[in-house]
Write a protein that binds this DNA or RNA. Sequence first.
DNA 1: AGGAGTGATGTAAAGGTTTACATTCACGTC
DNA 2: GACGTGAATGTAAACCTTTACATCACTCCT
Lengths: 364, 364
Amino acid sequence: MSKSTPATIEDVARLAEVSIATVSRAIHTPEKVAKETRLKVTQAIAITGYTTNAMARSLRLGRSNMILVVAPDIGDPNFSNILVGLENEARSHGYGVLIGHTQNDPQRGLEYLKFLNSNQAAGMILFTGILPFGHQTMTARLPPSVGVFEPVYNGGIPYVGVDDAAGARKAIDLLIAEGHRRIAFIGESRTRLAHARRKAGYEDGLSAARLELDPRLVMPGDGTIESGRLAVEQLFMRDTLPSAFMCVNDQTAIGVMLALTARGYSIPGDFSVTGFDDVPQASFMNPTLTTIRQPRTAIGKQAMALLFKLLQDEKPEETEILLAPDLVVRNSVGGSARAAEALTHGHRRRHPLCARCRADGSLL
Amino acid sequence: MSKSTPATIEDVARLAEVSIATVSRAIHTPEKVAKETRLKVTQAIAITGYTTNAMARSLRLGRSNMILVVAPDIGDPNFSNILVGLENEARSHGYGVLIGHTQNDPQRGLEYLKFLNSNQAAGMILFTGILPFGHQTMTARLPPSVGVFEPVYNGGIPYVGVDDAAGARKAIDLLIAEGHRRIAFIGESRTRLAHARRKAGYEDGLSAARLELDPRLVMPGDGTIESGRLAVEQLFMRDTLPSAFMCVNDQTAIGVMLALTARGYSIPGDFSVTGFDDVPQASFMNPTLTTIRQPRTAIGKQAMALLFKLLQDEKPEETEILLAPDLVVRNSVGGSARAAEALTHGHRRRHPLCARCRADGSLL
DNA sequence: AGGAGTGATGTAAAGGTTTACATTCACGTC
DNA sequence: GACGTGAATGTAAACCTTTACATCACTCCT
């Protein structure tokens, strides 16, 4: 008969010949119950196979043991490893992880908001640069939340991620060390904080090397493959080209490389390219991509840990935790002292769209 | 004052001047409530911003609105898109998706079992070939479950996935059409059902073309990159090589290609390779990988739909739903009529480990 | 010896919902 | 005009915990 319906605390109490209050105490505050009684209860639990009914517990406590993780796109290659870190840490606290993807649709964001309002989640992890709900006044109702991977634009929400500026700095330092002087930054954005920070690293690197920033080499982009492609096309339209492309992320770098190879250029022979993130594909591309590694699992773990601090009402001392990025050197960056010198117009081969090339046909 | 604490059904009832029972009915069985009353309730809900407390509801109903998705590895490239399909379908039924990854550790599997026993999940999706819990007798207690991507070995659990045999058949038919006669199968496994089915497709294809299966060309493997690498090394040890490698999945194919290129062979010039799954990397490799595409999002969607059928106590008419696979032709397969004919020993270049090559040094 | 203090346990309320059962009312039928 | 029928609504129990408060039995102090 105990098979059909799960054992309740009452079954345990009856078997251990104590009251249900004692059973509850034996579980949650064992020090308040006599050793002997504790033993009886433990045995009764083992016999009945009792597990606390999480629903009843959450109802009573007014707080669930779930954390909602919201991402615009679950398929994002950066997402899964962060999720691993999040899940591990949550589970070690006895919490479960609920996932939601908004596909950047505010309507869907609102549906998840309902999850929160109905007490189904005690806290929230945001894997997105902006709050996924339209501008509801409900902001006041938001449970403790932590942003990961990209700072949350609307502010006020603590954030755990990589040190974007430091990472970008490592990339540009490498390019400069390899002899590059004309380095483009692909993927400027006013609304994406991570982009802005990476660009800051780019600027720092240039000025540390006493190189002047050529604003014509700074291209906007939203971090998609397409944006990388587009940036290259536009640079080719104009009459100067860089010898290296520092991309705001790996997706952008993929787009840049596709555009360059489509035009018949070789990497790193003709141009060097760097990315940011170290997505799984980075080591399978041709050439393999030199990039900045995100400590993804660590980000997830720390973000969840911070969230638990918030849940315990501890005001966090820091509102932002920045992890150290690593430079991963692969094959998309070449020593280009020669390339840089051989260049006249900023590119190496003659190409039809460049006005100067057409003017003097001399360039190979 | 309604700000501090979420509105309850009682607040709504008071405002609408009805009993809480009527409010509940107005929400869940509106046809049982007079039109006029229904209107009053609807307005009261809008004013108070009431949302049903999911905890209380689940407690009362004895069933939650969560589905647990268990995977050995969240980071699996196949996982994320399936998850998208699962999540979309679940949410459209008002259910949330809870995720767990076991890392193939039965201990962790058991922790999730507790989730189930405590009524936190109404059903389960298994993204794994074997039940993630040790051999507990608890099997009887398992909630409605559906396997995805790989049939569940322990049996009895309905399954939604791609038609492995048909997919494999498409791959081998392509290879045969391209002129290959000696085709290896890399990744045989006794415990993994998906592997067995793909091998069955391989066998069918061979016999349909009246080709004899050479058992020396069937290599075991667990579907990892390393297993692909190892298989190639072992084939090189022996004195016959295939002209094409049909791999049980993309990971294996990656391993095979790495091993072949490390030995200086070109693909598809010297050897052809096919994969299975069409993981995201497949289109970024060099050469890009010809493979079989998994309809991942569709698998997720249909699996979740099937699970909801089970939850509604409908005995499912079919215990297995197989989706049609697509062949994705890329660059890792070459017309190898010439290669096949030029071969003496089954490989094209002379290589030091082959006894025959060493014996007659003639082969280029 | 009486009482304060302490430690262990029990009693009962509360948390928000759903729903079986009871009640009320209006209507139509004989 | 009494009564059965059916629709609309209300009452109250049940789901399973947690915990404030009450109770009880000690020990120790004065």
